[in-house]
Amino acid sequence: MQGEPHDALWQDPQWNDQWQLLTIAELAASCGLSEAELHELVSYGVLVPANPGEPQSTFSVECVFRVRKASRLRDDLELDTHALALAIRLLDRIESLEAELAALRARATYRLL
């Protein structure tokens, strides 16, 4: 924007580590989905608590990224929670297949061109 000074900030980013856990309320606050929608995603099995079976569910930080993606898809593609769960499941599968392909390519004896 014209005339606005650019901020030049030195940041020391915090690593999201997999041991950091969030409550469902924290997850809802950071992702833009309601707690009810998060419970529904849990019931469809696309969001798995770090402590399944316990009364107060907690979630790994990795869930933040999944749920943020879910939130974008819900808003931008106007999906209901059921369609959203299916979309997430399929995107997860694509992601894991791509990761597997990348690992196989790395380990391949000869470079696959």
Binding site: H6, L9, W10, Q11
Partner: peptide
Amino acid sequence: HHVERTFKAR
């Protein structure tokens, strides 16, 4: 308004 910001991230 949209303002452009530059972040230096280590």
